[in-house]
Structure formats: C-alpha cells, structure tokens
Design a protein around this nucleic acid. Structure first.
Length: 454
RNA sequence: UCCUCGGUAGCUCAGUCGGUAGAGCAGGUGGCUGUUAACCACCUUGUCGGCGGUUCGAGUCCGUCCCGGGGAGCCA
C-alpha cells in the first residue's frame, strides 16, 4: 500500500519542499506547450490539488496527455509554492501512475455543472461532483456531531430493531417483511406479521425507563407513495427519549441540539459550507448563524390558529380549531410571521397519536413540532402518556388491540415516570444545513416510490 | 395518490402555422512555455420518452402509459 498524503492535510500544513504521494481522481487537465496542469481530487476536501506534469515524465506523451476527467492516478512529486493565482501550492510530479482510465466518450460526468436531476440517475458517480461530495462530508460530520452531542450529555445510544412487529400509529405505512416464500402456506417468520420500523420510539421508551436518557439514530422506513422534495421511503432519524422529562425539557433539548449541529457544521466544514452558501443557497451561512444566535419562536396550536385566522393572507385550506395545520399554514408562520424556527405545541388530541400525553384541559396533548423556514416540520415530538388508564383508553379509542402492546403498557404499570422525546429527520436537517432543496440530495442512495437502482 | 409543468445530441436547451432537426457545452484532431469552466481552428454526434391514432406528411395535433420537476396529502 502506498503511503498516501491526503489533499486536505497538504493544503492545511503546506509542507513546501517535501515529497508527497497523492491518490485521487482527475478533475480536469489543461495542456500548454511542453507541460500539463492536472487538477486532482481525492475526496478529502472540496479543493483540488494542482499537479504540474511535464514531458520529462516517461509516460507524458503516452498516458498523461490522454488523461481525462474521472481517471484515477497515483502521483509522486514535490510540493512547491505556486507562482500563479488560484492556488497557493502545487505538486511538481516526478512520477504519475495511471491506475484506472475513464473513457471520455462514455464517462457521464463533465467538467461543467450538471443538474441534480441528471446526477440522480447516476447515483454511483455523483459523489464525485463538488456539491454531492460536499454533502457527503457534511453528512458524515453531522452524524458524528449527533453522537457527540448526546454522549457529552450522558445519553445512551440504543440500537432499536429494524424489523418490528409493532406499528407506531400515525407514522405512516409499514413495509412488510416476509421470507419471500409466497404462495402455499406462507408462515410468518416471527410468528406474526412483521415489518420494517417506522420509528424506534416505542422501543426507545423501554430503554429510557431503564437507563434514563437515551437516543436512537438509525434508518426508518415508510411505505407511503410520497413524491415530494422532503420525503424518502428510507431515511435516518434521531430519536432521543428522556425519563423524568416534560414537554418543556423536550423543547429545550431539541433547540439546543439543532443549534449545536448547525454550529458544528459551520465550524468543521467551512469550505463545503461556503460552497453551499455560494452556489446552492445564497445567504445560507447568515441564515444558519442567525438560527444559532436567536431563540426559537414558540406558540401553542391555539395561538397559531388565532394568528392564522387574523392573517390577511388568503389560505387554500380552512383554519379551524381541531383541524390540522396545513403546509401553507406552517410555512406562513415560520417563513412570513416569525422568519425563524418555530415550535408549535399543545395540539388537539384528536389529530395526534395515542402515545402523546393528554393535558389537564382534556382537549390537547403535550405535543411539539419544530417548523423551519423552507422545509417545514423538521422535529416532531411529545411528552408521552405515562398514566396506564389514560393510555389504555386512548389506545382502545384508536382501535388498537391492547394485548399486542402489553409490553408498552407494562412500562406504565411498573415504575412509570413522566417522559418525553422527539424525532429529528436527519435528511431534513441535512437539507436545512446544506440548502439542498430536494431531500434526494441529502442521502447517498435515495429510495423513493419506483426508485432504488442499486 | 391528486393538481400542474416538462421529456429533442453525452449534458443544458431552442425548434414559428403540421412540411422531415439546431445552438452552446462536452468529445475527437491539430496549435499554443504558467493554465484556472484555459484559449484558437476544424470535425463527429439523434429510436425527438414508449405505444397507438389523425394526416399525403407528426418533434409539433389527439389518446394512453412510463419517467422527471414544482405544489398538495401523509409525515421526519
């Protein structure tokens, strides 16, 4: 194995005069007289490294001058200060090995800008572009920051099951899991119908009532035929669950976490974030900076309904206490009224799932949604119903067979405590942080109805 | 799933009243001693999304299906 130096480190440390070995992919080649400029990316950072290759290289005519976008190379050379504008340093190659060619007649990626729609058709090649590569790095960093945030605060990560026999009411359609031996006497492998999880919440509650503060961070599946810029059939969700915690505490940790993650991306991925700010969403950095500095707005559902009723704006859908807020209503509130993240709490019990805690008024539940400009709902959570009888009644009302969820009810039978939690859509967070308008750019391999090419 | 706008060269797109298809970029060849989406000259590229219909004739009109964008519902 070669002792490669990553371009990120070269650009940070700039070890002038030293011999370095770069392993990467050609982005572009420019010839001029007796030598060529080759820009190489190795994925470690946004920036390319400029390589000077001249005709003293024994394969200059035979291979170097044929190098095209996408080809893989191993380059050995001396790092020198660059005399021209555009880059501080460059490598004067003493040896260039062409590892893998990329036929320019058929290689789909060109030097110019491609539409994201086109890049989606080549999801196996699109991380080689500046924008998707940057998303990949930021996503990785944010994934790390999620763990860091919770671990710093003593939360324990729980790996909740991917295959489950419990539906989480109100969380959409489940994909069914079978052995594939259809026809004849198909038996349920797990003894009863099973599916891919739509949420780890119910199981996270089990561990919260044992370990205190826990979180899950894993894939989630929804068999909804949703075809929008903010829905995926397979997505990642962060779900903290906290024992001895009420709605207030829940709101606090959610706001703290969002701000922590935004700040982390700006601190640790400055070049990538600058790319988004420049080419994807103008003013992105200012927006994110503002979010980290300001307190989130907070209103109750009832106040939201009042505001919407008094609004001069004409809405397509009716506003009435008891009806759920529509997208247009949420967007109006967060984008036009408050112009910052907005937490809406205390929704009518009739429009929220059984597990949310019924408030003293008997009409509302201790629910919270965090709405964000441009995306809408990014967090959905609640204080959970910890009273056995109230929960059982709510479940029966929702048409749930109590016996199937006795394990969930047991949590209220033995040492029940007030507890709360929420779900944060990881891809929606990535959208918000990168400015990507379509969620299909926020995940490496998006799965949507009719689309799962590899 | 519904509404709406699209699908034309490898990519981005133009194509008038129905008369048989074009531009930029990419790619190829040659030129250029420091380029930066390099530059200059020349050259190549088409199942006009699929199927069916109307017509002497369809990229263009009609039907239908597939795919994509935007919006909605569901939600994270």
């Amino acid at each position: 194995m070669v002792m490669k130096t990553r371009i990120k480190n070269i650009l940070r440390e700039k070890p002038l005069g030293e011999t370095v070995i770069i392993c990467g992919w050609v982005r572009t080649r420019r010839d001029t007289g007796g030598f060529s400029f080759i820009e190489v990316s190795d994925g470690s950072c946004l920036a390319n490294l400029q390589i000077i290759a001249d005709d003293r290289l024994d394969n200059y005519q035979s291979e170097i001058k044929q190098l095209s976008t996408g080809a893989s190379v191993i380059i050995e050379g001396e790092l020198k200060a660059s005399p021209a504008k555009g880059q501080e340093v460059e490598v004067h190659a003493t040896k260039i090995a062409v590892v893998g060619k990329a036929d320019p007649e058929t290689y789909p990626l060109q030097k110019k800008r491609h539409s994201f729609e086109f890049l989606r058709e080549i999801s196996h090649l699109r991380p080689r572009t500046n924008a998707l590569g940057a998303v990949g790095r930021v996503r990785s960093r944010l994934s790390y920051a999620v763990h860091q945030f919770f671990q710093e605060r003593g939360f324990v990560q729980v790996h909740t099951p991917i295959i489950t026999t419990s539906d989480c009411e109100g969380a959409g359609e489940m994909f069914q899991v079978t052995t594939g031996k259809a026809g004849g006497k198909e038996e349920h492998f797990f003894g009863r119908p099973a599916g891919l999880t739509v949420s780890g919440q119910l199981q996270a509650e089990v561990y919260a009532l044992a370990l205190g503060d826990v979180y899950t961070f894993g894939p989630t599946f929804r068999a909804e035929k949703s075809n929008t810029s903010r829905h995926l059939a397979e997505f990642w969700m962060i779900e903290p669950e906290m024992a001895f915690c009420d709605l207030q505490g829940n709101m606090q940790i959610a706001e703290e976490m969002l701000k922590y993650l935004l700040a982390d991306a700006m601190t640790h991925c400055p070049e990538d974030m600058e790319l988004f700010d420049k080419f994807i969403e103008k003013g992105l950095l200012q927006k994110l900076q503002g979010v980290t500095e300001q307190e989130f707005a907070h209103i109750t559902y009832t106040e939201a309904v009042d505001r919407l009723k008094k609004a001069k704006k004409q809405f397509e859908f009716p506003v009435e206490w008891g009806l759920d807020l529509q997208s247009e209503h949420e967007r109006y509130l967060t984008e036009e009224v408050f112009k910052r993240p907005l937490t809406v709490t205390d929704y009518p019990a009739t429009i929220k799932p059984f597990y949310m805690r019924v408030s003293d008024d008997g009409k509302t539940v201790a629910a919270m949604d965090i709405l964000v400009p441009g995306i809408g709902e990014i967090v959905g959570g609640s204080q959970r119903e910890e009273r056995y009888d109230v929960l059982a009644a709510r479940m029966s009302g929702a048409g749930i067979t109590l016996a199937d969820y006795q394990w969930y009810l047991d949590l209220r039978l033995y040492g029940s405590v007030p507890h709360a939690g929420f779900g944060l859509g990881f891809e929606r967070l990535i959208q918000f942080v990168t400015g990507m308008t379509n969620i299909r750019e926020a995940i490496a391999f998006p799965r949507t109805p009719g689309f799962a090419p590899c």
